[in-house]
Amino acid sequence: MAAEGNPDHSGQAELMSFLEKEGIVTKTYDHPEVFTVDEMMPYLEKMNLEGAVSKNFFVRDKKKRNHWLITAHHYQSVNFNTLSKKLGVSGGIRFADESVLKEKVGVGQGCVTPLAVLNDKKGEVKLVVEADFLKEGKHKHLHFHPMVNSATLAITPSDFVKFAKATGHEPIVVDMTEPTDC
């Protein structure tokens, strides 16, 4: 059964308005609605985009008190046990329910994006980013869903950091390149 996603595009409009207000220039590429990074990649490969493409996870701790939005390379596996140790989370991390995803960052499954921290007005979600994404000079652009799963947005790494800080979400930069399981 397909996930509901965010079909009304209101979140995308709010995001684009925020980016414009912050002086952040992006480019958006439309494609058919997708629910996994594997479904998305054939469309992006045809577009010959320059830079890193992300896959994203919304997770919580065992007690359901803390939440993280994790961004990694589309091809990268993420070992939640290793990552939870790097983040100092006892008891590990696991996927959060879609209802919590929608409550905390305003998007559904298939639309998870680090840009959704814009909707975390209470500052309850921590943003975790693969270290390679932010290495100086490594990637021309980073590619994320713009709150909908029918488009991909290109943003420079420096503008992505500017965006994150403007939303009150200083990125937690973590090397996730170790052998993995997710």
Rank of each mutant, 00 (worst) to 15 (best):
M1F: 10
N6R: 13
P7Y: 02
P7C: 06
D8S: 09
D8T: 04
H9N: 15
G11S: 03
E14S: 14
L15S: 03
F18W: 15
E20M: 11
E20Q: 15
V25M: 13
T26M: 07
K27R: 14
Y29A: 09
D30E: 11
D30C: 07
H31L: 10
E33T: 13
V34A: 03
F35R: 05
V37G: 02
V37I: 13
V37K: 02
E39K: 04
M40L: 15
M40P: 00
M40K: 11
M40Y: 07
Y43E: 07
L44A: 09
L44N: 12
E45V: 08
M47H: 11
M47Y: 13
M47K: 15
G51D: 06
G51K: 03
S54E: 03
S54L: 01
F57V: 06
F58Y: 07
V59N: 05
V59W: 01
R60E: 11
R60I: 01
K62C: 06
K63I: 08
K63F: 07
K63S: 13
K64T: 07
N66K: 15
W68V: 03
W68Q: 01
I70W: 01
T71A: 12
T71S: 12
H73L: 14
Q76I: 12
S77G: 11
V78Q: 00
N79V: 09
N81Y: 14
N81I: 09
T82G: 12
L83W: 00
S84E: 05
S84D: 09
S84I: 06
K85T: 12
K85S: 15
K86P: 00
K86H: 12
K86V: 11
V89E: 02
S90E: 15
G91Q: 10
R94W: 09
F95D: 01
A96Q: 04
A96P: 02
D97H: 12
D97F: 12
S99F: 14
V100D: 08
K102L: 13
K102P: 04
E103A: 15
K104W: 01
V105A: 06
G106R: 05
G106A: 05
V107W: 02
V107R: 04
G108F: 02
G108T: 00
Q109G: 15
Q109W: 13
G110R: 03
G110N: 01
T113H: 03
L115H: 01
A116V: 00
N119Y: 13
D120A: 08
D120I: 03
K122C: 08
K122P: 09
G123Y: 02
E124Q: 13
K126D: 08
E130M: 06
E130T: 07
A131H: 15
A131F: 10
G137T: 06
H139I: 04
H139P: 00
K140H: 10
H141Q: 09
L142N: 03
F144K: 04
H145L: 04
V148M: 01
S150N: 14
S150L: 04
S150P: 01
A151E: 09
A151F: 08
L153S: 00
A154S: 15
I155K: 03
T156L: 08
S158K: 15
S158D: 12
D159K: 05
V161T: 09
V161I: 10
K162Y: 06
F163Q: 03
A164T: 07
T167E: 01
H169V: 04
E170A: 14
P171F: 02
I172N: 00
V173Y: 08
V173L: 09
D175V: 11
M176C: 11
M176Y: 06
T177L: 14
E178Y: 13
E178H: 13
E178G: 11
P179C: 07
P179D: 10
T180Y: 09
